[in-house]
């Protein structure tokens, strides 16, 4: 692999719980090459959003403690002072969020909110920034951009707002875009439009993409590689097609197989059963063990993330198991 743009190594995030710390993300490692699109999947509470926020240094330091390394073009983000992080956010690394309804400031026009990003990072004059904001709205496919620039967020539909979020995030041509469930709140038809737009925009700019989603279909369309998280850890890191054909980790397999598409019409779905453990109540060994159908001796030991067949997997039985994937 080429020199990575982003390298995450042993990222650990702990949340302040009174006097002690509660580890919510542990031993998360993955890398993203320049221009590469990587998906981050897992069930809710797995730590996807927190990982994304940590990449921008957005977790408040009084609430969260971060350990490990997050290197963007060699620079360690976790040790950067707030002032340096501010110069980085929005310019070299951007983020868009799931809730298009609440992610924009309700009392500023969308044009102002795009121009503001430009002004924070470039020397553009207010007039030039405004003109550029209108162009940016046109680029994300908003009709009548000059008029729409004067609109407030509540005057736009959810899909339109997510387009505005994309325009804001890409305004300064960042090297990496973290998109946290950018289409989850949208209808399939609008989701398809937004995915289309997102892909065209990042490939036109050579921007790398970390796409957080619980929809593996969306990840398959956008990404070449996927990182699956379970209970705060990465459990498998693989090319998307390889994971879909033959997942190596039992959780990844379970996730794929519980999709309604893979069961016969109106037949019971092979669900994983049970629930992910809560932070603070993690099993000492493999975190998936309480729900795993392939548990044997050796599973009581903590599982490291190990390379296997050009992937990384956190299961000592991975090589021996032949697990079903998303192939009917």
């Amino acid at each position: 692999m080429a020199v990575p743009l982003l390298q995450v190594e042993g990222l650990e995030l702990a949340l302040r719980a009174g006097r002690s710390w509660l580890t919510v993300v542990e031993d998360v490692s993955f890398a993203i090459a320049p221009g590469e699109a990587v998906g981050l999947v897992g069930e809710s509470g797995a730590g996807k959003t927190l990982t994304g926020l940590a990449l921008l240094g957005l977790l408040p330091r009084e609430l969260f403690r971060a350990a490990g390394r997050v290197r963007l073009e060699g620079e360690d983000i976790l040790s950067l002072p707030e002032r340096a992080l501010r110069r980085l956010r929005g310019r070299r690394i951007s983020m868009i969020f799931q809730e298009p309804m609440t992610a924009l400031d309700p009392v500023f026009t969308v044009g102002e909110q795009i121009a503001e990003t430009l002004r924070a990072h470039t020397g553009l004059s207010p007039v030039a920034a405004k003109a550029r904001a209108v162009e940016a709205l046109a680029e994300v496919g908003i009709p009548l951009p000059a008029r729409r620039a004067e609109d407030y967020p509540h005057q736009l539909s959810g899909g339109m707002r997510q387009r505005v979020m994309i325009a804001i995030a890409l305004a300064c041509e960042p090297r990496l875009l973290v998109a946290d469930e950018p289409t989850t709140a949208l209808d399939v038809t609008i989701q398809a439009q937004i995915i289309d737009l997102l892909l065209r925009q990042v490939s036109a700019r050579g921007t790398a993409l970390l796409l957080v989603s619980h929809n593996i279909g969306v990840v398959r369309e956008c990404c070449s590689r996927v990182v699956a998280m379970y209970a705060g850890q990465v459990v498998e890191d693989a090319p998307v097609d390889a994971l879909l054909e033959r997942p190596l980790h039992p959780y990844a397999s379970g996730l794929l197989r519980s999709h309604p598409r893979f069961a016969p019409h109106r037949a019971r779905l092979p669900s994983i059963g049970g629930r992910a453990p809560a932070p603070g109540a993690m099993p000492s060994g493999c975190r998936f063990a309480p729900r795993c159908a392939h548990r044997t001796t050796g599973c009581e030991a903590p599982q490291p993330l190990l390379p296997l067949e050009g992937r990384a997997v956190r299961c000592h039985r991975a090589a021996a198991l032949d697990l079903p994937g998303a192939v009917p």
């Binding site: 980085l88 929005g90 310019r91 969020f97 400031d105 995030a169």
Partner: peptide, 8 residues
């Protein structure tokens, strides 16, 4: 959070 992510 969006504003912070923009680098304000």
């Amino acid at each position: 959070r969006t504003l912070r992510a923009k680098g304000l």
